[in-house]
Amino acid sequence: MRTYAITGAALLALTLLSYGVSRLDLGGAEMPVAMAIATVKVGLVAVYFMHLRHAPAGERLFALSGLVMYVVLFGIAATDVFLRRTTGFLPQ
C-alpha cells in the first residue's frame, strides 16, 4: 500500500510539474521535456502499478516489445520524414 501511495504521489507531482513547465517558455526544449516527464510517469505506472518489477521474464519481454516497435516505427520512418524536407512542393 505504501508503495502505491508513494508512486501515486510521485505521479501526481510529475503531472503538476509537467503542467507548470508547460506554462514557461521553453522554446525548442518544450516537447523533449514534456515527453521525458511522460516517459518517467509511464515507467512508474508500468513498474509499480503493473508490477513489472516482479513480473516473469516473458511478461517483461512483451512489455518491452511494444516499446521497441514504437522505436522501430518512429526511428526508421523518421529518417525519411525528417530528411526528406517534407511534403511541400520541394523539387529537391
Binding site: I76, T79, L83
Partner: peptide
C-alpha cells in the same frame, strides 16, 4: 515513392 535517400539506403541494408 520519393523517400529520402538516406532512409532508402537504410531500408536497403536492413
Amino acid at each position: 515513392a520519393g523517400m529520402s535517400t538516406f532512409a532508402a539506403g537504410s531500408f536497403g541494408i536492413l
